[in-house]
Computed example of a mutant assay.
Amino acid sequence: MLPAKRYAEALIKLGQEEGNLEKFYDHLFKLFEIIKSNNEFNNIWFDLEMKRSEKKQKIKAFFDDDIDSYILNLLYLLIDKRREIILPYIPLYYKQMYDKILGNVDVEVIVAHEIGSDVLNKISKWLWKRYGVKNPRFIVKIDRNIIGGIKLLFNNIEVDASIKGALDSMRKELVKIAIL
């Protein structure tokens, strides 16, 4: 969806210039939630037979000044260009770029048992030293199958320091040796 990416890039640049990166992020994801759950908005937004001027009026009335003017102008531009269909993708591309600028990374932490914030702080420091991850956002999942240790998944990287991972690795080595 390249057009959506270009719109997101333009918003990022504008957000940086205006000092509104976070504000745009918040408004785009508020809009994203509306797209996912509000039939009234979707009936207006995806009605391709409605006149552009009428659609703009209805969109403005829908938000009732509860949306940033730049985001509203983006909506108007999408209506004018008849690119309504790409709107759901713009927040996703914006998030990718926003996270890259701020160094935010979603890190899935898989453990066998609950862990405390002290462990997450150590993981955070290790991620910074090893991979340059500034702001990890941890998603902790409990998986008793890993037996013990920890497994990290982020940015298409897997760090497996689990007992199950070690046992699987040993098993592969033994099979390889047995075949030779």
Rank of each mutant, 00 (worst) to 15 (best):
L2P: 13
A4L: 08
Y7I: 01
E9A: 14
A10Y: 08
L11F: 13
Q16K: 13
E18A: 14
K23A: 08
H27E: 10
H27L: 05
H27I: 08
F29T: 01
K30Q: 06
N38V: 03
N43H: 15
L48Y: 15
L48E: 13
E49I: 13
E54N: 07
K60T: 12
D68L: 08
Y70L: 08
L72R: 00
L74T: 01
L75Y: 10
L75Q: 07
Y76A: 11
Y76T: 07
Y76I: 12
K81P: 00
E84G: 12
I85W: 14
L87C: 02
P88I: 03
I90E: 06
Y93T: 03
K95L: 09
M97Q: 08
D99F: 10
E108L: 10
V109T: 07
A112E: 07
E114T: 10
E114L: 06
S117E: 15
D118P: 00
V119Q: 02
L120E: 11
N121G: 13
K122T: 14
K125F: 00
K125I: 03
K125C: 01
G132Y: 09
V133R: 02
K134Y: 13
N135L: 09
P136I: 03
D143M: 05
D143W: 07
K151N: 01
K151A: 01
L152N: 01
L153Y: 12
I157Y: 04
E158T: 05
A161K: 11
S162G: 05
K164I: 04
L167A: 14
S169K: 14
K172F: 08
K176I: 09
I177E: 06
A178P: 06
